[in-house]
Design a protein around this nucleic acid. Structure first.
Lengths: 195, 195
DNA sequence: GTCTATAATGGGATAGAC
DNA sequence: GTCTATCCCATTATAGAC
């Protein structure tokens, strides 16, 4: 079972860097230290591996979101932490969110994988909608009109910001793309006035 | 020269649907009606083709932006038309902006292609910054604080919205992801009050 | 500029021994 | 569960005739 996890770890790292087509069983085998034929014992086909990859990522990500809800009181702080999840995922500017990386490429169009991808999106939007509804009550976020619309826009913004920053291999571009979003998050010590 | 254009057209269509790795010289050859060896006469390597692809796309897109500036007077109308460029590019929900499609995948990391991709981003941000500066003067867009920040956020939003909508094969998700953005664009006949 | 023919490589996958 | 060995296929790319 530990080999299986090592394979997923290795595959995720490369997939987030070079995309789904960016790694081969040969790469995985070299990285993990077994022969490529042995991989088929854990994942009969590459599609099986891809599905496990996305499912594991979505589960882990969802758990992080729930943790964020507990750790931060205000909606602004939760959204700030959410943004940092995407920011940190970029790492040195080369790693995308797995679901962004998988959203391009020919094989990502396979139905089971697309389903898992959409489940990730649905879960994210649900969590964000809750946060923006909280924001309307606690007033910590500016210009919230429609919680769900803001949720969907936020998800798209994070994914797009990653894409742009990765193309330039420059995390600072993520910050600049999300600066307007961050400006909407009021600080506890500040008493900002809506423009 | 006409064959070269037909090759680019075919490659662009498939690349925007299935990504850079989603098409082969064999696919192109079948589509255009020549043998795959003949393609190498026009594009010695696939990387050459990819570069030509992005450069042509960026040039064409930039021309469309300039046209938009002329056809629409208010910043709101220009941004609305800009959003529709990305919306229409989605077509039936399967075609991405070429630069979004190329932003994932192993070979898109080749330096010349990344340069072209970043040129596209730079040009887009420059155009959008101009528009948001116009918006501050004509007052047709709500909540403009920093023109460049808004420009970068808008670009990221469009790219992310395409990604999400494509995963679900549903153009409506693009509209929902950009609904909050669209709500900031005031109509000539309306006299909206900032929230 | 296009063709046939053919490299040369690397991909995912399988059979069967251990 | 991992191995060796092998298969089959698709890929990009090249050589040289027409």
């Amino acid at each position: 079972m530990e080999t299986r996890i090592a394979l997923l770890d290795s595959a995720e790292r490369v997939a987030r860097q070079r995309g789904y087509d960016g790694f081969s069983y040969a790469d995985l085998a070299r990285d993990v230290g077994i022969r490529k034929a042995s991989i088929h014992h854990h994942f009969p086909s590459k599609a099986d591996l891809a599905l496990s990859l996305v499912e594991r990522y979505a589960t882990r990500f969802q758990a992080e979101l729930i943790a964020l809800s507990r750790e931060h009181a205000s909606a602004a702080d939760q959204l700030s932490a959410y943004r940092d999840l995407y920011r940190d995922a970029l790492a040195e500017g080369t790693q995308l969110c797995l679901c962004v990386a998988m959203s391009a490429g020919p094989d990502s169009l396979a139905d089971p994988i697309l389903d898992a991808l959409n489940q990730f999106h649905t879960d994210s939007v649900a969590w964000l909608t809750d946060v923006f509804e909280t924001a309307r009550r606690d007033g910590s976020v500016l210009h919230v009109l429609d919680a769900e619309a803001d949720a969907r826009a936020t998800l798209a913004l994070m994914e797009g910001a990653q894409l742009v920053a990765r193309a330039a291999k420059n995390v600072a571009l993520f910050d600049r793309a999300t600066a307007a979003f961050s400006a909407r998050l009021t600080r506890p010590e500040t008493d900002e006035v809506p423009a």
